[in-house]
Design a protein around this nucleic acid. Structure first.
Lengths: 210, 210
DNA sequence: GTCTATAGACTGATAGAC
DNA sequence: GTCTATCAGTCTATAGAC
């Protein structure tokens, strides 16, 4: 019984509508998306969207939640692994993160846009307390690194910002970058692939600048 | 006669509506903005928005054009100055750019969002041939630098991307960053002020990595 | 579960008074 | 130039047939 309902949920109308909604919402944003667009993309009648999800807004909330959660699970295990060094953790994190972004290149701009239009609603709705990292092993390693005197002389927040910037921004500006440089999709992906190895090197250098 | 009409244009209803439109469009995007919001923000009746600008879309086009042009003029003179070195040009460009972003922190996300929703329309509408840099002096300096053998061993596009990322991304992610770090507006601006001097150093380091 | 038909609310735009 | 009143079109959501 339970098994059957799970199977049904994962691969039929409801799921198809959700996938269609994810695609259209992510590309056009909430306001510019019409329920008709979603229904058409899913190949069903627009009445079904309300049958399954009550309203456009409730469907949007679900998509937001799932989109944002894509950012999280790949990270938690790595942060708490006592077997890897700080530098190794950075290498793994950067590589995983860029992988995820290459699979979902439109995600960052979608999330940042919707947060910008209504900052607290989305953040509080979704982030609640999904992330708890106080006891992560990486914190201990970081504190040891800073205490050793080998850390950066600048505010470390700068380097954290730089790491996020170098990973995420190319995807946020993807269409513009490709248009300006005349780069194709493949060339762009090749470049991002290279960055998996380069970004940890740059971060490492910044951490030791004094 | 001519003088009078210019004065009228620059500081009355038409200009007030434009300022209101800039504010609301920039914050909510095109689709989520109602002409009523703009009229209310401007303190006038919504009929006037059509009286002066014919339609919501034509008004939006004007705002887009003006917003994107904010990115350009501050840059052109610097690129062509034979009196400054490459490193000095980078320092000035970064400083000016961050200044401009601190005055218009919402601009990058607005432009990137609207480009994403409809890539070619906006880019072609506005960019046409506003930017011509083939003969800029900086190109010559760059080619000399690369020919000297002191240039980076990685594809220089990476470093160009990094420079843009480190400057622009903090503003694109501003609301999220402030929320996650508990930073206030003043602390954020102080950080950005610091980055005016730091980013050229980081870029310089990247250019010499081999 | 899925479709058709339509209600009910909102939005951009205009006509016409002042 | 500015405002009021209103229309025509579009959108979300629902009622009801199948």
């Amino acid at each position: 019984m339970k098994k059957k309902s799970v199977i049904e949920k994962n691969s039929s109308t409801e799921e198809k509508i959700k996938e269609a909604a994810r695609k259209v919402f992510t590309q056009k944003g909430y306001a510019a998306t019409r329920t008709r667009d979603i229904a058409e993309e899913a190949g069903y009648n627009l009445a079904l969207i309300n049958y399954y999800f009550r309203s456009k807004e409730k469907l949007f909330d679900i998509i937001c939640l799932e989109n944002i959660q894509l950012f999280i699970p790949s990270v938690l295990g790595i942060l708490n692994d006592p077997a890897t060094t700080l530098q190794e953790k950075i290498e793994i994190l950067v590589s995983n993160y860029i992988d995820m972004l290459m699979k979902n290149p439109e995600l960052p701009l979608f999330i940042l846009s919707e947060i910008h239009k209504d900052p607290m609603t989305l953040i509080n709705k979704v982030w609640s307390n999904n992330i708890r990292h106080e006891n992560a092993y990486i914190i201990k390693q970081w504190q040891e690194f800073m205490a050793s005197g080998k850390g950066p002389s600048v505010n470390p927040v700068h380097i954290f910002i730089n790491a996020l910037s170098m990973m995420i921004f190319p995807f946020v500006a993807g269409p513009l970058l490709r248009n300006r440089t005349g780069m194709g999709k493949e060339a762009f992906n090749k470049l991002m692939e290279e960055r998996k190895k380069l970004i940890p090197v740059w971060i490492g250098t910044m951490l030791n600048i004094r």
